[in-house]
Design a protein around this nucleic acid. Sequence first.
DNA 1: CATAAATACGACTCTAATGGTCTTATATCG
DNA 2: CGATATAAGACCATTAGAGTCGTATTTATG
Lengths: 134, 134
Amino acid sequence: MIQLSKKVEYGLIALRHMAIHQQGQIFTAKELANIYDVPYELLAKVLQKLARTGTISSIQGVRGGYMLIKKPSELSISRIIRIIEGEKPMIAECYVDGPDSCSIFDNCSIRRPLGKVQRNLNVLFDKMTIQEIV
Amino acid sequence: MIQLSKKVEYGLIALRHMAIHQQGQIFTAKELANIYDVPYELLAKVLQKLARTGTISSIQGVRGGYMLIKKPSELSISRIIRIIEGEKPMIAECYVDGPDSCSIFDNCSIRRPLGKVQRNLNVLFDKMTIQEIV
DNA sequence: CATAAATACGACTCTAATGGTCTTATATCG
DNA sequence: CGATATAAGACCATTAGAGTCGTATTTATG
């Protein structure tokens, strides 16, 4: 089973929601959680991460919330995954940092198959943006 | 974190190994487990599944083992995943069987983002074959 | 200025899936 | 018969993931 985590799923849902609505509009975590029937706290954490990385801006206090500040076309799936999952939209660790991260990389025939799959997946997720899922 | 299971990883490793060697050659599970330093029992189970589905043939008894009987170019990653993981190389359940599997499919804006990701991933994994990772 | 409505953030629990092991049965070659 | 394979299922242990809770902080507004 190959799966994106719920966090990534919720992140994509939220970003998409913001993307299809008017630019500059503010959405609260609670609001989004209600609309999509998704656990509020979990979604909130995801939104906080996205906010910390400058993907969305957060406004605290009453009438606060979140607002998309990047263009949907600039937000690749790769990037979202990396933000939410922490640097690793990866299938095998070896391929994150290249040769140096694995001592036997050179003649590591083991991970070979995964490497190719990985690279293809990267190409796909790099190209795909929020724009496309609107 | 997006990840293929170890089973799939071992399956790909084994199939690739068979594919790069002479057609018709027999390999034992133990042999493969040693070469790639992978848990024998687990690999064995994967090979058994591949055998049951006609991807490789199994020969029991002394001097037995496994033999690739399909062309590497006919073995897509999708197919391998489906064989090993059981019908679901999927990101969100909704999209396995199409509309009927989800009651609110029509206006289910929730899973929308995943749907597109899913379709793209399917295209990628359908096109990629063992041939390519040799 | 008090209150309510938000975000921020970390600690915690629970569960299910995964990876791995063990045991037993069966087949087959010599 | 015995050695060496596959076949298959039961079993366990660990981990990651999903979700919850509590508390602090910020801020608009009556």
